[in-house]
């Protein structure tokens, strides 16, 4: 419990630093939300009035403090552009992003774990070399390229899956899944490559450990040794990187969301940045920061599940 509290306390300074920096940076960017909203035909009086209405006439630190005060009462404000409450915009888009993230990671792991284990079984063997080459191949393919190829094959050629778009899970779970398969696979591809390599190299190290030799000396079959003895100790880097990926993906995967026209956090963030829709940007920044800290927290918690020694050390502190 103390551990959880400490992690939550971490969140506070992280949020301060991150939101202040993002507030500063987006305000320092050239461009002006008022011009974006009013367009080139706006008169000076209208510009001034709107600036006042949106409280953009105050200095940046003052605006930041205002924003903080509002945050403290649970208000993220509303979009300058379409007046949608920021919280609502995030709530509408977060499910897509979360689903995409979970599905992509599930695909990546479903493929990477068996591949990594098999590759580590015989380092430099044929399977290892094939997976290494495949992994680097996947890494080298930019995901927009992969998306185009996947759409061509699965949507246009075979008509198996939709080419783009999104159906809410609550609306139609099957359609929801169908819409997310291609984007998730696109996102998963590069992760598969990374995960396979990570798992493989840690497995190779683990398999050289004495306790593996002991397990072999016990007469256990290879499969059992790989899965029961070697796998869990070899997942630390994997879990760490998955955590980082989750943090990253909470911010959305802009390119994939854009290509597949998915209403996720990534497109929301990028379009808000372009529109200088400061409050929406701030809202997504808070979300991403919380996401990162949460993902890290989960990673830390999972360490102690993975390694009983860590739990005992934590219990002592």
């Amino acid at each position: 419990m103390r551990f959880v509290r400490r992690q939550l306390l971490h969140l506070v300074p992280v949020l301060f630093v991150v939101t202040f920096l993002s507030f500063l940076l987006i305000n320092l960017l050239p461009g002006d939300p008022v011009i974006t909203i009013l367009g080139p035909g706006a008169t000076q009086e209208h510009v001034t009035a709107l600036r006042k209405e949106l409280a953009l006439d105050e200095p940046i630190p003052v605006r930041y403090v205002h924003w903080l005060k509002r945050i403290a009462t649970g208000h993220l404000g509303q979009s300058y552009v379409n007046r949608q409450p920021v919280l609502e915009a995030i709530r509408q888009r977060l499910p897509t992003t979360l689903e995409l993230m979970i599905l992509a990671e599930a695909f990546a792991l479903a493929l990477a774990i068996p591949m990594g284990i098999l590759a580590a079984r015989r380092p430099n063997g044929i399977f290892d070399r094939v997976t290494t080459t495949t992994a680097f191949g996947l890494l080298a393919v930019p995901n927009f390229m992969l998306a185009v190829v996947l759409v061509y094959v699965f949507a246009l050629h075979w008509h198996l899956l939709p080419a783009e778009g999104y159906t809410a899970l609550t609306q139609n779970p099957f359609e929801n899944l169908r819409h997310l398969v291609l984007p998730a696979v696109t996102l998963a591809a590069a992760d598969v490559a990374v995960y396979v390599r990570l798992l493989r190299s840690e497995m190779v190290t683990t398999l050289q450990q004495d306790f593996i030799t002991l397990a072999r000396a016990k007469g256990l079959p290879d499969r059992r040794i790989l899965l029961r003895h070697a796998f869990r100790p070899s997942t630390f880097s994997l879990v760490t990187v998955i955590g980082l990926n989750l943090g990253r993906l909470i911010g959305g995967a802009f390119i994939v969301e854009y290509i597949f026209a998915l209403p996720g956090i990534g497109t929301l963030t990028v379009s808000s940045i372009f529109n200088r829709d400061y409050l929406v940007v701030q809202g997504t920044v808070v979300l991403i920061a919380v996401g990162y800290v949460l993902a890290n927290f989960l990673v830390d918690v999972s360490y102690s599940f993975l390694d009983p020694r860590i739990k005992d050390v934590r219990a002592l502190t």
């Binding site: 759409v151 080419a163 778009g165 854009y258 026209a261």
Partner: peptide, 19 residues
């Protein structure tokens, strides 16, 4: 009405019968 900003994706969506 569905926004599909990427022109290529939009055409793909039509070809695939999504729209």
């Amino acid at each position: 009405i569905r926004p599909i900003p990427d022109a290529h994706s939009r055409l793909s969506a039509l070809r695939a019968g999504d729209v």
